[in-house]
Design a protein around this nucleic acid. Structure first.
Lengths: 124, 124
DNA sequence: TCAACATATGTTTAATTGTTCATATGTATA
DNA sequence: TATACATATGAACAATTAAACATATGTTGA
């Protein structure tokens, strides 16, 4: 009796173990291509620098030119320009020229959403 | 006449320039504390590594133990464990012990949302 | 308690990356 | 077109960090 119960339990465990392996196997197929996950990581890497986050956040409400940003955040013009290039390349910001100045702004709503979600997580 | 028109234009430009400066000044006050933006960047930094993204994505549907992950993603046990520690510290994953194994899963819906948002941006 | 398994941690090394300084490009105006 | 202003770019350096290897901790069952 105790023997049977034990065996039964073991069988159940074996089965759920086998099931788990099947699930895991399926997951391996469902997992997106490495390339896409690599791109995804690259995207978050761009958000993962405090200077760039400050720049992005500053543009939340209003477009800004390079000098505005440098003054606002107390950063060198060069540093801001380098970071804006990275943000441009990742399509996180867009820009328009007006005379001598170039005005930058957030490229789309995804950017806002991602930052907002992150904020919610951080503020807990 | 032409003179007056020019002056008027200049005034308008001056005013909007002053307005812009006011707006920028307000922004400086609205900008969250440096510390929060620093934490936010730190959070995204955690998402900004392809190994960690792969691990997180693997856990999208199902909890996994360290060995599962290592096997699934073809990573060393050590590497997975190190990365899980980082994910734990950032509260992106939670875990429960079952016998010898420790099962990890995504900590909350924010994690899923942030990754999904990122995916949408990348897939464009 | 001991052996085997699962996970965690410490350390070293190679590669990545943000900033700074110097300089270049581009634009408007006198 | 010459000068000043706004932005971009190149190169060098310092700091960060992921992976690998070795080892430690913790758990189970004999």
């Amino acid at each position: 009796m105790a023997e049977e119960s034990k065996e039964k339990t073991m069988n159940v465990e074996k089965e759920s173990q086998a099931e788990r392996e099947t699930v895991i196997h399926k997951m391996q197929e469902q997992q997106p291509d490495d390339e896409i996950l690599y791109d995804l990581a690259e995207l978050f890497k761009v958000f993962g620098d405090s200077t760039r986050i400050k720049i992005l956040y500053a543009m939340f409400e209003h477009e800004l030119c390079v000098n505005d940003i440098a003054g606002l955040l107390n950063l060198s013009q060069s540093s801001v320009s380098h970071q804006l290039r990275i943000l441009k390349t990742s399509k996180l910001v867009k820009f328009r020229r007006e005379g001598k100045s170039i005005y930058y702004s957030l490229d789309d709503e995804h950017v806002r959403s991602i930052i907002s979600m992150g904020m919610e997580h951080v503020e807990e």
